[in-house]
Write a protein that binds this DNA or RNA. Sequence first.
DNA 1: TCTTGACCTTCCAGTGACTGGAAGCCCCAT
DNA 2: ATGGGGCTTCCAGTCACTGGAAGGTCAAGA
Lengths: 140, 140
Amino acid sequence: MNIKEVAARAGLPAKTIRYYEEIGLIRPLRGANGYRSFRDSDLHKLAFLGRARSLGFSIEECRALLALYEDQSRASSDVKALAGKHLDQIAAKIRELQEMQATLQQLVGACAGDQRPDCPILQGLADPAGLTRIKTDCCA
Amino acid sequence: MNIKEVAARAGLPAKTIRYYEEIGLIRPLRGANGYRSFRDSDLHKLAFLGRARSLGFSIEECRALLALYEDQSRASSDVKALAGKHLDQIAAKIRELQEMQATLQQLVGACAGDQRPDCPILQGLADPAGLTRIKTDCCA
DNA sequence: TCTTGACCTTCCAGTGACTGGAAGCCCCAT
DNA sequence: ATGGGGCTTCCAGTCACTGGAAGGTCAAGA
C-alpha cells in the first residue's frame, strides 16, 4: 500500500503519516523506488493512533498506548491508569472552559450590544472589581 | 516602572511582556540605559491582556479587544459580537471534550484494570466496531 | 574604588502536532 | 517523449510563549 491509500483508509493526512514515521510511531517498509510500503499492521496502527488522538491523547500517550497494545503480557491496569489520568485532564479542561464560559456569559449578558461605546465586557476586562461587581449584582 | 515590577503587578511573566511588545500589543518607553519604562497605561493594558487571555481569547482577539477598548467611538455591539463568537468557540470545545469524555468513560468503565492483558480500552481503540458494541451494550 | 549580585538587554532555540510549499524523482498512459 | 499524478525530502510556519546564553547596568556594601 502506498501512502495515499493508507491515508484514505486510516483517515489521516499523508503528511501526518510521514510525521508519525519521523517520530518513530510507525516503521513502514520501503520499496526499491524509495516509496513507503505499508502493511496491514501499519494501517492498523495508524487507525489506532487516529482514534487515540481523536480522544485527545497526546502523541507520547499514544506511543505508550501503542506499546501496551503490542505487549501481549501487559496488565489492563496499566492501560486503565493511563486512560484514567487522561480522563482527569479532560475533566480539568472542561471545568476550566466552563469557568471561562460562565464569566464571559455574564459579561456578554450585561452588554447592550448597541451603537453606544459603553461596554461591560471591556469594563470587566479592564477592571476585575467591575467584573466582580457584575457577578455580585447578578447573584445577589 | 521596570519590567519586574510591572510583571508582578500585572500578574504576567516578564518574558511574556517582552513578547507582547515584540508583537506590538504594547509600546513601553525606553530609559537612557535601554531599559523598558512602563507607564500606568502600559500596566493597565497588560492587566487587560492578562484577563482577556485568561478568558481564552487568542492574541489576535486580544489585539482587537484592546483596539476597541482604546477606541472611544466604538460600538458595544462590536465588542459583544467578538465575545459572542468566542463564547461559541468555547461551547464547541466543551462539547468536543465532553464527547471524548463520554467515550473514554465507557471504555474505562468496561476495563477490569487487573493483571490480565484483556482490555476493552485497547480493543476500542483498535476496532471502532468494538467501541460501538460497548456503547450499544451500554445503552441498549 | 572595587566587587558582588540582582536586574536588565538581545538573540536563538525549543515546545506540540502538525501543515504548506518548493524542488525534484518515479511511474504509467498516451 | 510528454504529461500528470504520486512519491520523496527538506525547510519554514503555526501559536503563545519559555528557557537559556551572553553581556550591559545599577545600587549596596567592604
